[in-house]
Computed example of a mutant assay.
Amino acid sequence: MTVMKLALTQFTVVEVLPGYWRATFDHPPINLMTAVTAAELRAIVEAAEMADDLRVLVFDSANPDFFFARYDLSAGPLPSEPGPTGLPAFLDITVRLGDLRAITVAQIEGRARGGGNELALACDLRYAALETAVLGQPEIGSALVPAGGGLERLVPLVGRSRTLEIAATGDDYDASTAERYGWVTRALPAVELPGHVDALARTRTAGPPGRPQPHPGDRCHRRRLRREHGRAVRVGHAGPARRGTPGSRGRLG
């Protein structure tokens, strides 16, 4: 096991085995996300893009009660400068994370809300602790629209109506409900979760490099997702979406 030499303050990235990385988030006391978090996530994604032998990247947390919490509104806005995709900072990160050749996994223990949920949704696989995992998009309480790709990614997973419920209520959802909705890949007892994810990662590392080749329909979905992200940039950042506006229709399907 080798600690990766990246200039990070909120993350530790460890190479468990050749081709198997774990990125552990640790920003006390409750893992709120800030502009520093976004910058360090971008650095991790950039390193992953350059690692030809990377096969599995797992995101987890040092705090069992908080996976990734929402963005810390008191810390000021996220950087708005576009990344290589042409999208603003956090959207750029989630799109590039979803485009990695390696398989990405979110090991969710504790709360994953707002940007934390959007990061988990950008991963290929999401495994949640039955006793502690809580997911949600609470932006409605601040008159905001989720702008990290959460709604666009939720629609194909849970359906349009449930996505509207999640966004319009801002409610929290436990792991069991999230599994039933299709939001997470599987909900497991907390004691079993790390071992399950680790075994999956080790199995994948032992196989051929890269992820399985997508079905042509998956590529069509990815192009649609990018279009929806672009629409979010144009209308979602202008303010809260209202029922019946082009922005609200575009973001929900």
Rank of each mutant, 00 (worst) to 15 (best):
A51C: 13
V155Y: 02
T203C: 06
P194A: 08
V105C: 06
Y181W: 13
G148T: 13
E15M: 03
V155H: 04
L144R: 08
I166S: 07
E15L: 03
R223K: 14
T203A: 09
R234N: 10
V134I: 15
A238P: 01
L157N: 04
I108V: 15
D171I: 04
L151K: 05
A7Y: 01
R42T: 05
Q107D: 09
A167H: 15
T37P: 00
N31P: 00
P214Q: 06
S142Y: 06
L154H: 05
I108H: 07
I44E: 00
L6E: 07
K5G: 01
E46W: 00
A43S: 13
G150I: 12
G195R: 07
P79Q: 12
D172L: 12
A69Y: 11
R180M: 03
G148S: 15
G141I: 03
D72I: 03
R249H: 14
T24F: 13
V235M: 12
V58G: 02
H237S: 08
G236R: 10
A47F: 10
Y71G: 04
L164N: 13
M4N: 00
E179V: 02
A69T: 13
G207R: 13
L32E: 06
I93G: 06
G170T: 02
A187H: 03
G116H: 05
R202C: 05
G217W: 15
L200F: 12
R226T: 14
I108D: 04
P29M: 09
L119F: 05
Q137F: 15
L130S: 14
L130H: 11
L225C: 08
L200P: 05
D198M: 01
D171L: 10
G114E: 04
D53G: 00
Q10L: 15
P29I: 12
F68Q: 11
D171F: 06
T104C: 03
L6T: 06
L32C: 04
Y173V: 02
V58F: 01
L73M: 13
L154F: 03
G195P: 01
L188H: 05
Q107W: 04
F90G: 12
V3D: 13
E40A: 08
P18C: 05
R101Y: 00
G247V: 01
G159A: 05
V95Y: 15
A175V: 11
P138V: 10
E131P: 04
G115P: 11
T132H: 02
H196G: 06
A167L: 14
R180W: 03
M4V: 13
L193T: 07
F66E: 10
A232D: 15
G114S: 14
R42S: 04
N31D: 08
R96Q: 08
Q10A: 13
R101P: 00
P88G: 12
R113N: 03
G86V: 08
D99N: 12
T34R: 02
G114A: 10
L151S: 13
H221D: 14
M4K: 09
G244E: 07
D174H: 08
E46M: 01
G110D: 03
R249K: 12
A47H: 15
Q107P: 01
G76H: 14
S142E: 10
L151M: 11
V56G: 04
